[in-house]
Design a protein around this nucleic acid. Structure first.
Length: 366
DNA sequence: AAACCGGGGCC
DNA sequence: GGCCCAGGTTT
């Protein structure tokens, strides 16, 4: 190994042991808890994860508890974290571990990698952190740090780049220190070697950082731009109950797969054009016809209640909320429910609808 | 390789 | 308003 590599590994490890943050999942050796933390941390910041992690392992302390829990309960503990397939896949995988591995998180690469929701990064993280096996765990932080230290100009948005980074990262792991070293790499990326303004003055490996030497640390890593999200115009019906349903709103459950799977929402549909969306009277009429023909729910639009927006990674919902009343109280489809303000907590909502309904019920109280 | 899959914090 | 975040799955 080159002297630059040895210096990097040793100094980074020394720095980590001195400066590492005290995080909940660093206080445990339970492979299941470490696994949960790694899934939550996918595309999600540490500060966001902390309260979710504590609540989750409090409610599902063992792998068997999670395996036995109702899926809705699991989703409720994930509400607001996003990427809900992570929760679904985690429970699927945990059931698999109970059934196939006697409820012990496997410590072999092939077995761990075969679990639902466990990709190359998470497999490496579990193996190294829980079992101290010399496997790389290459995430966005690690690619940024390695790109700079070794002045690598490969586009980190390309899948092939991660593969090369994994070989490099593995070659850097000090004997018997895989868990701490991998966490050190990520910790440096999170605390010092940050995306916009790296704090090279506080970096324990800056001396041999090749990007730093070239004065190019702010140009790296190279990352091609993602496609901008596609705007979609949607009309939503806020259907207010009367009689036995007074004070309640009609909501529906989404399908069990795809976007926001099995979560609850206001009935809504994509407007056929921006023009239909833009004229409240036209839009309301179109929405009533669409919901009647697609779901058999007959409504009478009453007016414009407001607009909101929901941004996903790949699309943007422009949502116009139309007030409405149900034409016939008799029948609504199986996946519809009337909910009042006290029942919001019994359902799992995407943030956009949880906020919308919360604000609606508060405003109506005045 | 590209598209799909949330939400929030930061600049 | 753009960028990024302890990514994985599907096509």
């Amino acid at each position: 190994m080159s002297s630059e590599k040895r210096f990097f590994s040793m100094e980074l490890l020394r720095w980590y042991k001195r400066e590492r943050r005290d995080l909940p999942w660093r206080r445990t050796k339970d492979p299941y808890h470490i696994w949960v933390s790694e899934i939550m941390l996918q595309q999600t910041r540490v500060d966001t994860v902390i309260p979710y992690f504590n609540r989750f392992v409090g409610r599902f302390p063992t792998l068997r508890d999670l395996a036995a829990a109702p899926e809705e309960d699991v989703l409720k503990h994930w509400e607001g974290l996003g990427y809900y397939s992570r929760a679904r896949n985690l429970q699927t995988a945990v059931k698999e571990v109970v059934a196939t591995y006697d409820a012990q998180v496997p410590s072999e690469k092939k077995a761990v990698s075969g679990l639902k929701g466990v990709g190359p990064y998470t497999a490496g993280a579990i193996l190294s952190i829980a079992y101290n096996k010399p496997e790389p765990a290459v995430d966005g932080n690690v690619m940024r740090v390695l790109s700079r230290y070794f002045l690598l100009e490969d586009d980190i948005a390309k899948p092939a780049t991660r593969v090369g980074m994994e070989s490099l990262a593995q070659s850097l792991i000090p004997e018997g220190e895989a868990g701490d070293f991998n966490q050190a790499l990520m910790e440096l990326g999170a605390m010092v070697c940050t995306p916009k303004s790296p704090v090279c003055g506080e970096c324990s490996v800056a001396l041999h950082c090749m990007a730093r030497q070239a004065g190019r640390e702010r140009e790296l890593p190279v990352k091609s731009k993602a496609k901008p999200p596609k705007p979609v115009f949607r009309l939503a019906a806020l259907i207010e109950g009367t009689g036995a349903h007074a004070g309640k709103v009609l909501v529906r459950q989404r399908p069990g797969s795809g976007l926001l799977a099995s979560m609850w929402e206001l009935p809504h549909a994509e407007a056929p054009s921006a023009d239909v969306w833009g004229e409240v009277k036209v839009g309301g009429k179109w929405l009533a016809e669409t919901i009647a023909s697609e779901e058999g729910v007959r409504i009478r639009p009453t007016g414009h209640l407001g607009d909101t927006q929901h941004i996903f990674t790949h699309l943007v919902w422009q949502i116009r909320v139309i007030g409405a009343a149900l034409s016939e109280e008799a029948t609504v489809p199986e996946h519809y429910r009337w909910v009042g303000p006290d029942e919001l907590e019994s359902y799992v909502w995407p943030n956009v609808f949880r906020k919308l309904l919360t604000e609606y019920f508060i405003a109506r109280n005045d």
